[in-house]
Write a protein that binds this DNA or RNA. Structure first.
Length: 596
RNA sequence: GAGGGCGUAGCGUAGCGGUUCAACGCGCCGGCCUGUCACGCCGGAGAUCGCGGGUUCAAAUCCCGUCGUCCUCGCCA
């Protein structure tokens, strides 16, 4: 029966044979991970994406076969036929899933050879990322990458299962669309049929998903490809994937509950991790006040505390003058850092200055003994109540800053994140989710001296703040929500405006005439004239999510073929200069300055 | 657009107080080895130290410029 199969048809993968399979005649196919030639014996680890299996070549059994095995080199593609047998006593490799057994080779076919590799395939070295990207097909064969691709697949599958079970439709929206010159820069695609005209690649399916709601598709989701021609970061790629969701006839908590359910299901299915729901919620004001940032990393419990009332009239001049001029004094406690050196203290002060603090006042506790410039100014009783307020333990370090409230909060927030890294502070959880709600609807663009939408122009204001729209628009809070995971903005959404009058009002505050607004978003506004249901939604960064799930800092690690930091593809060389014939067909001319 | 890190054999790194400093590990090639599993042992090939200029008797090392790459800020509704 085995001979009826072409030599590359396998009976098993390289990750599944166990002791119970002993005696079976099997055929494996894969890549040579390693050949260990002991002279009289040869062991070959054969690898596929499922795992590794050891193959044993014994010259006493078959000398020709043994000679053939001597030629095997790394990454040759081979198929091996043989008998599954238990390894001899004491030779079991417990660190290997297939470590109980080995294949006694009876037949070996070299299906393809391989050149000497451009890098080492083992996991024991850091590799230059551009080199990995240039040979991504080799990189993908390495186990960490194979595992991440599997996790990404499982996550996508779980997301689809969940939404399907909840009556959502997965609908694809166009990736060739009209450009809306707002926000991030578009990638443009010239049209041959319409010379001089371009399509834009979507930055997100935002407008289309709202149109789907008008179209009655009341529960929509999509794993949507999005494109932004902006500068890159470790968590930003020019093309990326988001879990895009929109629902009709719902309010904010419906979306929040649905997404919590989705994440809970997905973490369980893809990672085997049980998440606790509901996730904590915090208003934007609370987040800024307690953490100095709109995406707090709740894996670390430290919060910013206002101590103005506890330090007033202390005689400590910086504090007194700041408080007299309407500023605040705020602090943060660093657990276990009470015994830091002078040098480390200076490092913190330098960092504080970098973040915009005029100075940082330290209060260090060493076995309960306070050490601080403040000890001269505060009585032991006041110092003690300050310590209680700051929840400082016997070996903790408290840092104070004085100045304008929001400025020092933001700076202390940055300092908090720096300290977490610098002192490797212990995490209280692996995955800390958080909803941040009640964002400001508008923000003031200092450069252009105009009011703009904080989220986007279709975000609805909170009903209770609508009366402020004409008088104090910057105080209006929005029905928008962000989901934060480990200090990373994972997703952002809102309840949309479906009321024309309100929409016009928003445009007016933003300084857009109805003509201008119609020019930009005409097709959406038109659609809203034909019966738009109340609706809202959210979009989550799928790459960011899977990166965090797999413990990676960079989303490139969870994308099969990513671009590098310069938005280049080291493998294909994209982007490339178009050929003159292509430009001719498109009736385009390049106007690029000559290279120096 | 700005700041910072890095650039030494195919890969990962050391050397960076100026004069045996071009080294180590992996990989590669040759030889030996019957229970290895990051196999072991012996030997070998392989690098104008990113590129250009400068300082010096002497530069991988110091200085200037430039290119590449990574990280961050700006930017990213």
């Amino acid at each position: 029966m085995m001979n009826a199969l072409p030599e590359y048809r396998r009976t098993h993968t390289c990750g599944e044979l166990k002791g119970v399979d002993r005696g079976r005649c099997v055929r494996l196919a894969g890549w040579v991970n390693k050949r260990r030639d002991l002279g009289g014996l040869i062991f070959v680890d054969i690898r596929d994406r499922y795992g590794l299996t050891q193959v044993f070549f014994d010259p006493a059994k078959n000398e020709t076969l043994f000679k053939l095995a001597e030629d095997l080199k790394q990454e040759y593609v081979i198929s091996v036929e043989g008998i599954v047998s238990l390894r001899p006593e004491g030779m079991i490799n417990a660190s290997m899933p297939t470590g109980e057994i080995e294949i006694l080779a009876e037949k070996l076919d070299i299906l393809n050879d391989a050149c000497v590799l451009p890098f080492n395939m083992g996991e024991h070295q850091n590799l230059d990322e551009n080199l990995r990207m240039k040979y991504r097909y080799l990189d993908l064969r390495r186990q960490p990458m194979a595992e991440r691709m599997l996790l990404r697949h499982k996550t996508a599958r779980a997301v689809r299962e969940y939404f399907d079970a909840n009556n959502f439709l997965e609908i694809e929206t166009p990736t060739l669309m009209s450009s809306t010159p707002e926000g991030a820069r578009d990638y443009l695609v010239p049209s041959r049929v319409h010379p001089g005209k371009v399509y834009a690649l979507p930055q997100s399916p935002q407008l289309f998903k709202q149109l789907l709601m008008v179209g009655g598709m009341d529960r929509y989701f999509q794993l949507a490809r999005c494109y932004r021609d902006e500068d890159l970061r470790a968590d930003r790629q020019p093309e990326f994937t988001q879990i895009d969701v929109e629902m009709s006839f719902i309010e904010r908590d419906d979306i929040i509950n649905m997404i919590e359910g989705m994440l809970k299901y997905t973490f369980d299915k893809a990672l085997g991790v049980s998440l606790q729901t509901p996730f904590p919620r915090m208003t934007w004001h609370e987040a800024m006040d307690l953490y100095g940032i709109d995406k707090p990393d709740l894996r670390y419990p430290m919060i910013i505390t206002d101590v103005s009332d506890n330090v007033k009239d202390s005689g400590f001049q910086v504090f007194d003058s700041t408080l007299a001029s309407g500023g605040r004094v705020r602090g943060i406690t660093v657990p276990g850092a009470g015994a830091i050196s002078r040098k480390e203290g200076d490092e913190i002060i330098t960092k504080g200055k970098e973040f915009g603090l005029a100075g940082v006042v330290t209060l260090a506790f060493n076995q309960g003994q306070p050490k601080s410039p403040l000890t001269k100014f505060l009585s032991p009783e006041r110092l003690n109540s300050l310590r209680e307020l700051m929840k400082a333990g016997d070996d903790d370090l408290v840092l104070f800053a004085a100045g304008e409230q929001s400025a020092i909060s933001v700076a202390l927030g940055k300092l908090r994140l720096f300290l977490v890294q610098r002192f490797q502070l212990p995490k209280t959880s692996e995955f800390a989710f958080l909803w941040v709600i009640d964002f400001p609807l508008f923000s003031f663009n200092e450069e252009e001296k105009r009011i703009e939408a904080e989220h986007h122009a279709f975000t609805s204001p909170l009903p209770q703040d609508q009366h402020l729209m004409d008088t104090e628009p910057l105080k209006v809070r929005s029905n928008a929500y962000d989901i934060v995971l480990n200090g990373v903005e994972l997703g952002s959404g809102s309840i949309r405006i479906h009321d024309r009058t309100m929409q016009e009002k928003i445009f007016k505050v933003m300084g857009l005439s109805s003509e201008q607004a119609f020019e930009k978003f005409g097709f959406l506004l038109k659609a809203f004239e034909y019966g738009a249901p109340p609706h809202g939604g959210i979009a989550l960064g799928f790459d960011r999510l899977t990166a965090i799930m797999s413990g990676q800092e960079s989303i490139r690690e969870i994308i099969a073929f990513p671009k590098n930091h310069q938005a280049l593809c080291p493998m294909t060389g994209a982007p490339v200069t178009p050929a003159p014939e292509q430009l001719k067909i498109l009736k385009l001319k390049l106007d690029v300055p000559e290279e120096k």
